[in-house]
Design a protein around this nucleic acid. Sequence first.
DNA 1: TGTTTTCCGTAACCATGGTTACACGCAGGG
DNA 2: CCCTGCGTGTAACCATGGTTACGGAAAACA
Lengths: 237, 237
Amino acid sequence: MSVKIPAKNDESLKSALQNTALFRNLSEEEIQSCLVCSKAESIYYEKGEMIFSEEDHPVCLPLLISGSVTLGMDYSDGKRNIIAIFENKGDVFGHELILIGESKYGMYAQAQAKSHILMIPKDFLVGTCERNCGFHSTLISNMLLMMAQKSLNLNERLEVMSCGTLRQKIAKMILFSIGDKSSMSVSMSRQEMADFLNAARPSLSRELMRMQNDGLITVEGRKITVKDRNALEEILN
Amino acid sequence: MSVKIPAKNDESLKSALQNTALFRNLSEEEIQSCLVCSKAESIYYEKGEMIFSEEDHPVCLPLLISGSVTLGMDYSDGKRNIIAIFENKGDVFGHELILIGESKYGMYAQAQAKSHILMIPKDFLVGTCERNCGFHSTLISNMLLMMAQKSLNLNERLEVMSCGTLRQKIAKMILFSIGDKSSMSVSMSRQEMADFLNAARPSLSRELMRMQNDGLITVEGRKITVKDRNALEEILN
DNA sequence: TGTTTTCCGTAACCATGGTTACACGCAGGG
DNA sequence: CCCTGCGTGTAACCATGGTTACGGAAAACA
């Protein structure tokens, strides 16, 4: 069973919120004011508990403090579609639906592990608040930045997914995330990486090995080293 | 060749802007103030002209008044990836890059037909403006709403592109855009539709005809009629 | 009106990659 | 220690769909 605490009384929150995208550029005092003024609630969910379900009305913005949350949809034939998984402190989900003013979520959010969520009432975020104009506008502008960033991430994902052959997708993914280093450590399992690239796992394994044989990269478990950066970039042309 | 006019002198603009998402809830007088204060420009592009290209710096937010704009990327082998097509009054594009403060667009925007664009300087949107606080915050909150909507659209696009076979992509695209009607008119050419689905044009034609033969839909040029909605939904499982 | 260009469907060929099944190494638990 | 489960690489088979080339219809243009 989930445990609710008014957020203003939850001491562990204040420091946790300071480094989140939504509360960026706010002092601890301002965050404290936010928590009081917004009437936010700090809620602890057990593994498997629903944070919101498809029929719920979006009235609060959930912000993940700790734990792991799955966002998904049910199909009428009983199959489930996982839309996203959140497990980073400061992640928010469903904010688009709140901003749009949708009357139903149309998707569910479920705690994948024991999770700590800050529930911020919609009215505090969307409405204008005479008293606290200062940090209110900071909040809004943080929100804008978060959404812009998310939009770009989605675009990047689209770019990777739409760049032709599997080898090209892999090359683009590697070049995106390796920066100017020569080796990287993939945070995903092969299966997850395959899902990300929208490919089948054996196909991904096969292609990674081919790329190794062709002298483009070396693969050791989750460590990938670029051997021939030029050739890798050439593939994308 | 494109024709530039300072936006404050462009009489046709003011009424056109009133029903756009960005200027929602602003009176004609407030819009007039915006145009003066922002130093926005009203620009007319001929078909085929570039509105911005991949190397340009994002300094202005383009807002479509009339016409049609394609957002895309070029690969050096000549292939194009169409990211989006804008043809509705009030559409804006590239706003994420402006908000983030990206130094390059990384994509191009091209007029698909004679188009009328309002170019709003970035500084007006991002900076805070002491004088006009009232409608400034309305603008920002409109921006939030637009981005939320866009985020949902991108998700939809991702969903379409990652749903397996070409037939499934087509089915999902149709079901998304047909609502509860039984027929629809596609706004894209076959080539554009193929680019959108990340497929080759002949492959798309082939599959559309197969789906027609299988009694799922009928295709007459750009008009698609759903014959067997259940079967179409069944494909997605 | 005739000419040209664009758009679209069609067909044959073959590469890419999905599917399935299996084997191996490794970690955790009894 | 064995057993089990998981993550991973491998191989064979074949479906999906990309490629290229062509013809016809419609649209645009002179």
